[in-house]
């Protein structure tokens, strides 16, 4: 492998990883705070992609301008889902939560199938095919934009969690929800906010992927696996872990796709998944047992 090729693959991997990170941050945030493993996470991505697709094709919006509609739209969608499906399962056994979110995933896929058909739909605009040439390095403009937007959203989330009262309240709730209530934190409201925030970030990731990939009702299943691997790799509940994990998986996928075969990417995820579980069960950034503190 030449140096140029190496850099080319690395760049492609990092750019892909940025979007993986954004998808995974929503999942890990919701898990960290609410202890809910959201199996409908991939379908949230799908909803974001369809919303973006129709904003571009039917409302003739610029795909990147569409983000400012997709983010609040998915935030509201997340609020609705939390209040109707998730809230009744909080504090119930894991089985109840698994059934609720798997059920939601099936419902959303079926609804998308009825509404949009099983056709695979993609955007074909000048910007989706635009390339950026940096010397001998060539990268897609949508890939760069997706990466930059994902990193900006992640940075904004870090600032929000680290520096605001509500952000601190979210972290406090993740660490000890009954102590959080004693601080005057409205824990159910924090759950609603966190779920909606996680959903909005995933929807944003979907909208950023729309110019690169195509959408179909089952598109979420392709990405949700990556998100779970990233979350376990980074440490369940760790936002910075999801960021680093997303980038790592993006790089691994790009290199393994070139050196082995893109068809094997799911197998590669699972191998990484197993290695992490054996070598470092708490993940790269996870603290062993920290996911149990909010009992």
């Amino acid at each position: 492998m030449t140096f140029q090729l190496f850099v080319q693959l690395l760049a492609a991997g990092v750019l892909l990883g940025g979007v993986y990170a954004l998808i995974s941050i929503g999942l890990t945030l919701i898990f960290g705070v609410m202890r809910i493993v959201n199996f409908a996470h991939g379908e949230f991505l799908m909803v974001g992609m369809y919303l973006s697709y129709y904003l571009v094709t039917a409302a003739h919006m610029n795909p990147y301008l569409a983000l400012i509609v997709v983010a609040p739209g998915l935030y509201l969608f997340g609020l609705l889902v939390e209040m109707t499906v998730i809230k009744p399962t909080v504090g119930q056994s894991d089985v109840v939560q698994v059934f609720a979110t798997v059920g939601l995933s099936i419902v959303l896929q079926a609804a998308a199938l009825m509404a949009f058909s099983a056709n695979v739909m993609g955007l074909n605009l000048p910007i989706t095919n635009a390339l950026l040439h940096l010397g001998w390095l060539t990268i897609g403009v949508p890939q760069v934009l997706a990466f930059v937007a994902a990193m900006l959203v992640a940075a904004a989330l870090f600032a929000f969690l680290g520096r605001t009262d509500v952000g601190r309240a979210i972290r406090a709730t993740a660490q000890d929800r009954s102590a959080a209530a004693l601080m005057g934190i409205d824990v159910p409201a924090i759950y609603r906010l966190t779920f909606a925030l996680g959903t909005a970030m995933t929807g944003l990731a979907g909208a950023l992927l729309m110019p690169i990939y195509s959408v179909s009702p089952d598109v979420g299943t392709q990405f949700v696996l990556v998100a779970f691997v990233v979350v376990v790799l980074g440490g369940m509940g760790s936002v910075s872990g999801a960021l680093v994990g997303g980038l790592l998986i993006g790089i691994v996928e790009t290199f393994s796709g070139f050196v082995i075969d893109p068809q094997w990417k799911a197998a590669i995820y699972f191998i990484i998944f197993l290695i992490v579980l054996v070598v470092r069960p708490a993940g790269l950034f996870g603290i062993r047992g920290s996911e149990e503190t909010a009992s």
């Binding site: 309240a169 972290r171 406090a172 660490q175 009954s178 102590a179 004693l182 601080m183 920290s290």
Partner: peptide
């Protein structure tokens, strides 16, 4: 509360600031 129940992965100052969340 009994057993203190501080937020262990936050700084002392952040714990105090959370005390004045209300």
């Amino acid at each position: 509360p009994e057993g203190r129940r501080l937020f262990p992965f936050m700084t002392v100052e952040e714990n105090l600031l959370l005390g004045s969340y209300a």
